[in-house]
């Protein structure tokens, strides 16, 4: 069980592709910073290929004026995710 964080948007598709390759069904992807733009409907097909769960950091969504149907977490939720997973892998 790994928590993957990803901080870059659709302008860097290779980053998300690498992250997807490294994930399993028990992992979680947390979109942070510019990574939250992947939650737009235009990228639904891409996110559908994530083997595990996908969540997004609330403050980064709010800051950028993006609404999403994904599960969101606040900073406390981010900390909880790191605890609920064995380790964290950062993609940036």
């Amino acid at each position: 069980m790994i928590l993957h964080t990803l901080n870059q948007g659709p302008g860097n598709p290779a980053l998300l592709e690498n992250c997807l390759t490294a994930m399993t069904a028990t992992d979680t992807l947390l979109l942070i910073e510019d990574g939250i733009y992947w939650s737009l409907p235009a990228y639904a097909d891409t996110l559908a290929r994530v083997p595990g769960r996908v969540q997004a950091l609330e403050s980064d969504l709010t800051a950028r004026g993006i609404k999403t149907a994904l599960t969101t977490v606040d900073d406390t939720g981010f900390v909880e995710l790191t605890i609920n997973h064995d380790k964290v892998v950062s993609w940036f």
Binding site: I2, T21, A22, M23, T24, D27, K87, V88, V89, S90, W91, F92
Partner: peptide, 16 residues
């Protein structure tokens, strides 16, 4: 690619 998740799982800390 298929072996990457197992590689990550084998290590205690992954430093990017």
């Amino acid at each position: 690619d298929a072996a990457l998740p197992a590689l990550l799982a084998q290590h205690d800390t992954v430093l990017s």
